[in-house]
Write a protein that binds this DNA or RNA. Sequence first.
DNA 1: CTGCAGCGATACGCTCGAGTATCGAAACGC
DNA 2: GCGTTTCGATACTCGAGCGTATCGCTGCAG
Lengths: 220, 220
Amino acid sequence: MTRDNGAGGGDELRHRGGRSRDSSRDLALREAALDLLAEVGYDRLTMDAVAARARAGKTTIYRRWQDKAELVVDSLNSLKGAPDIPDTGSLRQDLHALAEEITSAEGKFGARVTVGMVSALARDAELRQVIREKFMAPRMTGFREVFERAVARGEMSDGHDLDLLAGLFPALALQQLVMSGELPDTEFARQIMDEAVYPLATAPAARIATGATAGGKTYG
Amino acid sequence: MTRDNGAGGGDELRHRGGRSRDSSRDLALREAALDLLAEVGYDRLTMDAVAARARAGKTTIYRRWQDKAELVVDSLNSLKGAPDIPDTGSLRQDLHALAEEITSAEGKFGARVTVGMVSALARDAELRQVIREKFMAPRMTGFREVFERAVARGEMSDGHDLDLLAGLFPALALQQLVMSGELPDTEFARQIMDEAVYPLATAPAARIATGATAGGKTYG
DNA sequence: CTGCAGCGATACGCTCGAGTATCGAAACGC
DNA sequence: GCGTTTCGATACTCGAGCGTATCGCTGCAG
């Protein structure tokens, strides 16, 4: 018995002697799982491969997590959230800083993981939520803050749909990755910022300019 | 012997009697494969399921295609290309017509298939090319023509990156589908057109407005 | 020292799916 | 009619991968 380190109670009748859990194994296993997620994706990730990469036995995995899905979800949740925000003086420079950060090693890693999860995402709502919270949301809130500063600065007109704007870069990067198989590099990211994100952000807000879309519905 | 109906030679020493291939089985099998692709994706598509759905034996499949990958590629290639172009008088109305068409039953089917292929796309360049040619390209050329007409009409300034513009909607729709698990409906599509595609298309071209990006590199 | 629990390693049972083999029936040319 | 080929159906082999069991070892508590 004594399974899981998840959200359960925890104490109850504890040990009566015996070796204690080596928490370094948790870290090694989660890291192995994430690396493999980025390399081969969820469907092709095997428990044997995780164990082998972490130099662990499969017993050690199943003592901690019920199954593959739980291991993956917990590994994703163990990632640290938002990296940090640039804060130069202009919208364009802020966007370039974001482009730099997103195409850093860590950003590329996140992109690979996301793509590796896509097939599983299509049929598992819990995985979708984790991916949204751990990858999309932090990246998008970075954009949001940049846009909000630009609005306060007067560089952008008010009335823009910031959710849409913040999702623009991730969407184009995802498409590029899926369709070409190559990761977006810094040059590509900057190009998107200059030719899509920045012009759209500084264009007059659609709702004001046209008055046509009175719906007011927000994106998920 | 006598395998494949692919790109091979074809005639050689023909029949010396015997039952002839029933071409209606080809159609039924390809249709079953495409339906299953849209429903469960490439990885979870099984040959038994294809055979069962087409009320065929697996023998009948393997007499025509070498393996699963070949069946899928051939099925995708059997799809008809571009549907057709609207041709109203204004850019905005053209875009709304595109939104309608893309969220039609056929368009939704294409979206499902594309998402179902994503995981396989990450590791198979041939599949990537087929998807690009059969799904992305036709949709994007529809956009291109709409934009070119708008430029000719004077509704858009010259100098825009039409590849980027044409890819904008597919990228946002793909993202929406992946992240929410729901297909984009007509309202959502129109919203994207009004708040992203149209404003960006009618904004001054980035290259002219800024003069900053002198690269001139094109997207895949 | 003794017993218990975690550790890595290995082997195992089980299911699923790809691709093959075999069967009786049906269609086609001669 | 007769041989040949296709058809659907079924049974099969084979490998992959999940999750479990077992083993010898190692640390920790009492």
